[in-house]
Write a protein that binds this DNA or RNA. Structure first.
Length: 426
RNA sequence: GGAGAGGUGGCCGAGUGGUCGAAGGCGCUCGCCUGCUAAGCGAGUGUACGUUUAACCGCGUACCGAGGGUUCGAAUCCCUCCCUCUCCGCCA
């Protein structure tokens, strides 16, 4: 959420920058108008309430019953007027909130301006794509042939976009989870958390998934439980409505959770393999930092994600999103993509964003810069570290052998009981 | 899920219709005093929104778990919900 005062004071600058992420000027004007209406109503209501208080206090001093009675009678009208206007104010207040909540973040000034994903910028590429003396196969063929991915039974149990990992396939994913968590905890300074994967609606408003993107979420119909689309949601909300005391920042958290997404919008896209499912696992890094550090913290976050690629020895590249491809909440965003030689594409395995104070304002996450000082909004950031299915894809396709077996990357072997390869026999 | 108790400021805790943003205590901040420390004395000490301002101050309104209602007026009365604790039930 943007600061309404910023929009009020610099409407033209805000419009100009929001235009680069596709927001119409008329939307901003509608918001500003709604703000004006609401503030005028506040003045009106508060003046009447002040009058009510003063006159009520006078009533108790009136001892003559007739006089008192007529005073009460005339006050009754005022009371009704107040409650009528309060209802109107509540509506106008809601209209304003809704508009403000649906306005995306301002892009960071350094973000390249562009229309859509075609104008994203590849920042760097690390590692060389592997060469094969045979033609590399996609993971859905490898996985099925090895008996470690079962698509048919996934569909039987839960429908399309579900699959079963089996045997060493399941173990490979589990090894990755444990190894990545250990890496971020031991070498990158993150504190592990195990959060709920069902959360209250407020959490999703805090991170910016609601009110606008509810159609990509699963929820319980009886209670206020929403299934998280990413660990970012519960972990960011950990400090909702809290003031982080001096000396506590930066706070780094890493969490492993399953993630649930309806993927309604992308029906028909990426249907083959395990690239895009309704349920997938992810290790997620979340940072809470002082505003002046957030730019540097984003670069460090990206590097933490890249480190996973490096240690697995899988080529990767870093892509900066242009204004047109920024998410609703991000001020600046980099994707880390791994090369998958079997399906011959770059797979997004991590998305690292600086939200600046956009989420913090929604979720009221603040910090105290100095003892006794006024609380200020923190900056929040997060990035995958990494998304499991796509890393599994990249490993299977990168480490595949001519005989259809797959060699296990060195760093994972201790997490797989010393196992060195996956083949049909195992 | 059932029965009971309870939710008031940073913390403890009083308050059952107006003089209550809320006694008292603790904590904290500032000042005084004290040759260190401790004690003592005095003053101050919530948040949000609106208004005004360069900014502060000031002024107004709201906030006593949340929402709704009664009333001229609600922390206080009524209704609904949430949460915590104790006991029982169930359960990985």
């Amino acid at each position: 959420m943007l600061d309404i005062k910023l929009i009020r004071d610099n409407p033209d600058r805000v419009k100009e920058r929001l235009a680069t992420v596709g927001v119409l000027e008329t939307d901003v004007d509608a918001l500003l108008n709604s703000d004006r209406v609401r503030r005028a109503r506040i003045r009106e209501v508060e003046a009447l309430r002040a009058e009510r208080t003063t006159r009520s206090k006078e009533i108790r001093k009136i001892s003559d019953p007739t006089e008192r009675d007529s005073a009460v009678r005339s006050m009754r009208a005022l009371g009704e007027r107040v409650s009528q206007l309060e209802k109107q104010l509540a509506q106008e207040e809601e209209d304003f909130q809704q508009r403000l909540l649906e306005l995306p973040n301002l892009p960071h000034p350094d973000v390249p301006v562009g229309k859509d994903e075609d104008e994203n910028v590849v920042i760097r590429t690390e590692g060389k794509p592997p060469t094969f003396v045979f033609s590399p196969r996609p993971h859905w063929e490898l996985g099925e042939a090895l008996g470690i991915i079962d698509f048919a039974r996934g569909v039987k149990i839960s429908g399309s976009r579900f699959y079963i990992l089996k045997g060493l396939g399941a173990r490979l994913q589990r090894a990755l989870i444990n190894w990545m968590l250990d890496l971020h905890v031991n070498e990158h300074g993150y504190t592990e958390v195990y959060p709920p994967v069902m959360v209250k609606q407020d959490c999703l408003v805090g991170t910016g998934n609601l009110p606008k993107f509810g159609d990509n979420l699963y929820r319980d119909i009886e209670e206020d439980f929403w299934f998280i689309p990413t660990a970012e949601v519960p972990v960011t909300n950990l400090y909702r409505e809290e003031v982080i005391e001096p000396g506590q920042l930066p706070v780094y958290h890493v969490a492993y959770t399953p993630c649930f997404r309806r993927e309604k919008m992308s029906a028909g896209r990426d249907v083959r393999g395990i690239k895009r499912g309704h349920q997938f696992d992810k290790v997620e890094m979340v940072k809470f930092v002082e505003p002046s550090h957030s730019d540097a913290e984003l670069l460090a976050l990206v590097d933490n994600a890249e480190e996973v690629c490096r240690k697995l020895n899988i080529p990767h590249r870093v892509v900066q999103m242009c204004t047109g491809d920024l998410s609703f909440v991000a001020a600046c965003k980099y994707d880390v993509e791994m090369w998958a030689p079997g399906c011959a594409e770059w797979l997004e395995v991590s998305s690292c964003s600086n939200f600046r104070d956009f989420q913090a304002r929604r979720a009221k996450i603040r910090y105290r810069p100095e003892p006794g000082a006024k609380p200020e909004l923190v900056h929040t950031l997060n990035g995958s570290g990494l998304a499991l299915p796509r890393v599994v894809i990249a490993i299977l396709e990168t480490y595949q052998q001519g005989d259809g077996s797959v060699v296990i990357p060195d760093v994972l072997r201790p997490y797989m009981g010393g196992q060195e390869k996956i083949d049909r026999a195992s």
